[in-house]
Structure formats: C-alpha cells, structure tokens
Design a protein around this nucleic acid. Structure first.
Lengths: 150, 150
DNA sequence: ATGCATGCAAAGACTTTGCAAATTC
DNA sequence: GAATTTGCAAAGTCTTTGCATGCAT
C-alpha cells in the first residue's frame, strides 16, 4: 500500500505539532489512488468516495500540506485548474504532452539532463531545479488525423 | 516598430470578417511592449496607459484573438494567473532564471534541442514546441550569499 | 482539557458572458 | 446602414479564509 507516504506525512506533522487526522489520511489515500496530474477537484471527488463528509477546503488545505511535506508537487496548470502530481518515490521526470488529446508521457533523458548541467556551468549558475515540457502530437492522434482525410 | 504583427493581425481579422479596431491595436501594442510572460492584468495596465478607456474584458477577448492569430502563446501559469508570451518573430529560446533575484538569461543550446528531437522520435510524437525553464542561483547572488557570511 | 482541524459559507482572484451603446467597414 | 466591438457589470470558476464546532493528543 502507501505506507511510506503515510509515514512521511505523520512525521512531517508531528515535527511541527500538527495532527494526523482521519480527513488528512483520507485525502492522502485519495491523492495516491489517482494518476499524476490531478486537480484538487478530482482529489476531492475521490476523497468523498472514501468519506462523503470531506469538504473541499480540507482538500485544498491538505494538498498544501502534502506539497510542503514533499509528497505532492504542483504541475503546470490545466486550462482551468492547478494540477498536482506525486512527488514521493517518483523520480525526477519531464513531460511530453499531446496537444490533441492531452495524453502525458513522463520521461527522463540523460542527454538532456547532462546538457542542462552544461548550460548551468556556461552561465555560472548553481542549479536548483528545472521544468521541461515538450508538446507534440502523439502517434494515436497522428493516425486519427491521417484517417480523417488529412 | 511592430508593423509585422499589426499586419498579421489585420489579415487574420479580415479573413474572418472581423474588424481592426482601435482597442485591438492598443492591446496589441501594449502586449508587444512588454516582456514575455505577461499576465492579462499586466497587459491591461499597459494598455490603459495608451488609452485609459480600455476595459479588461476587451483585453481578455483580444488576447484570445492574438493567440488564435499566432501572435501570442499561453505560457505556464503563474501562481495566480495565466501568462502569455510573444509568439511571432521571437526566435525560440529557453530560460535560465535566478531564484534569488529574478534575473532571466535567455539561451539556446543545440545539444538540448537535439536531445529533445530524439525524445520526440523515441515516443513517436510529432513536435509542436516545448518549454524549458532552468532555475538556479546566478553568479551575482552566489557572491552576495558568500559575502554575507554563508 | 487544550489547541489544532473541519466543514460550511462567504470572500477573493481571475476569467467569461450578457447587453445596450459605440465603432468599423 | 449593418454588423461587429466595446465597456460595464454580473456571473462563473477555482481557491482561500473566517468561524463555530469537532477531534486528536
């Protein structure tokens, strides 16, 4: 199950005198049960299936905690809402997004990572992270377009 | 000046029976006068300096037109608002941002570009653009930190 | 018991939409 | 002159905050 994450959260909470509540555990479970790139609303919906009494404010508040605890990370926004992704036991990765259907491929490419380090050196910066989003059309959507006469 | 963009917009409008109005020209000028990564609000503010009567609704509506016309592009959102950037005659580049002072270095790195193409091929995607943001600490801020006893 | 956490609802922030008046072609 | 556009204000989203009650420690 998600024991690791639960323990991380408990420790994070205890360290600052906060409490491990049923609601927080439920939101964590809901979040972990979903794919990466989830909206707060999707998490709320999933949490309500586990406990219909969970309010949306609690979801927002808990997501912030999860982010601070290193379990979640803000991803690029959707058209409308902020999206969150898993950040624990989830190695660094970049995103390749289909502009037609929205599919997201997560990947890691060592050549890109190395080349980025070179850029940091070139400008004398000390690295503190990066975000790379590649956009394109996925094979499925290419085929769809071809079949529809283009 | 920004003749090219104006002509692009005029053609775009004429092609679909829309009109080149004073307000649209003002918003275009305001948008072009700002750096990349501007919020709708910043554009509105800049537009009001050119013509105090411009309403925010017009700014939002015009940004959408500029985007459709290929002059603007939605960038990743800020914490709060959607950001837009120039999309015309604006050579491709990536950003290296100092997390301390906010300085932005624009750069192009052919190794990174090549490596990205390889990723597209690996997953069978057809490229339609990308966004790379590197974050770090610039030489100046490193020195500042060192001097202040760290 | 103490004090943090919750859920509700109200408030905020950003964006979109409806409408009468103004502007463009 | 006909039709699009505008600015205002109201409505819509998503997110945050205030507050009385409920819980975890």
């Amino acid at each position: 199950m998600h024991g690791d994450e639960r323990i991380i959260l408990e420790r994070y909470l205890r360290e600052r005198g906060l409490k491990m509540t049923h609601a927080r555990e439920t939101v964590l479970t809901a979040f972990l049960s979903l794919e990466s790139h989830v909206s707060a609303d999707a998490i709320h919906e999933a949490a309500r299936k586990l406990d219909p009494g969970i309010g949306q404010a609690t979801v927002f508040r808990t997501i912030k905690l999860l982010t601070d605890a290193g379990l979640a990370r803000e991803a690029c926004r959707d058209d409308n809402a902020r999206l969150y992704e898993h950040a624990w036991n989830h190695a660094h990765h970049d995103h390749l997004t289909c502009v037609e259907c929205g599919a997201v491929v997560e990947f890691v490419d060592s050549s890109i990572e190395r080349a980025q380090e070179a850029v940091y050196r070139r400008f004398g910066f000390v690295s503190s992270g990066h975000r790379l989003e590649l956009y394109g059309i996925c094979p499925g959507c290419q085929a769809k377009k071809a079949n529809s006469g283009l």
